[in-house]
């Protein structure tokens, strides 16, 4: 599903953030990426989501080397990924419904299909009835659940989550993680970045541990 082959990423002035990282994730796996801040976790995720390009090495997504993909093809790769962010990244002047429906609008789904899928996604994260609310009127946990609904609404084969519980208290974090495991059980490949060792260790899953840009298994 996802393969990193000797991937190095360096930024001008700050040297190598990732150094020769190689790993492979199979379809239907649930993988955590852990490590201290600055270890390169977020960079790994940004590379996978095509927000950055590798300096050296290859990144294969479904066998396609996405590191060298021309810019105009990037949107179509992203539509097959569900992205979840630490700071939720909701659009504040749109309702919960519109936020969740956004990926469907972008992909050009019809109105009935959009409505059906949006309501199903909101149901799944336990936010049925929140359609007309605005993100600012929601708690942090609820906002993150809107973000999750938005990530699953297109039913992507793979979900990338960047510190999804970073701003939430332990109970809410567990709840979110349980939700992720549910998605994984129906076949969605999960790649979750988290610095919370305690939380990660409570879930059965492979852990990719990063230390100063290198992978330590």
């Amino acid at each position: 599903m996802l393969q990193f082959d000797q991937v190095t990423k360096s930024y001008p002035g700050s040297g190598d953030v990732l150094r020769g990282v190689s790993f492979q994730i199979e379809r239907g796996e649930m993988v955590f990426v852990s490590g201290h801040s600055g270890a390169g976790k977020s960079t790994l995720l940004r590379l996978t989501a095509l927000m950055e390009r590798p300096t050296r090495g290859a990144i294969l997504l479904n066998g396609q080397n996405v590191g060298r993909l021309p810019n105009r093809k990037i949107p179509f790769v992203r539509r097959r990924l569900g992205l979840i962010f630490q700071d939720y990244r909701l659009i504040h002047d749109r309702t919960v419904y519109d936020n969740v429906a956004m990926p469907l609008l972008i992909a050009g789904f019809g109105p009935e299909e959009t409505d059906h899928r949006t309501r199903a996604a909101l149901n799944k994260v336990g936010l049925a009835g929140f359609e007309r609310r605005y993100p600012v009127t929601l708690s942090g946990g609820e906002q993150q659940r809107v973000g999750i609904a938005r990530a699953i609404v297109t039913r992507p084969p793979m979900i990338l989550a960047d510190e999804p519980t970073g701003n939430l208290d332990p109970d809410l974090s567990l709840e979110i993680m349980a939700m992720f495991r549910e998605f994984n059980q129906v076949g969605v490949t999960m790649l979750i970045v988290s610095h919370d060792q305690a939380l990660v260790s409570r879930f059965a899953g492979r852990v990719l541990h990063l230390e100063r840009g290198r992978l330590v298994e």
Binding site: R89, M102, P103
Partner: peptide, 16 residues
Amino acid sequence: HEEIEVMKLLGATHRF
């Protein structure tokens, strides 16, 4: 600006 960034991350083309 933020909204545009989010839309790009959700797979929106420049045209969209």
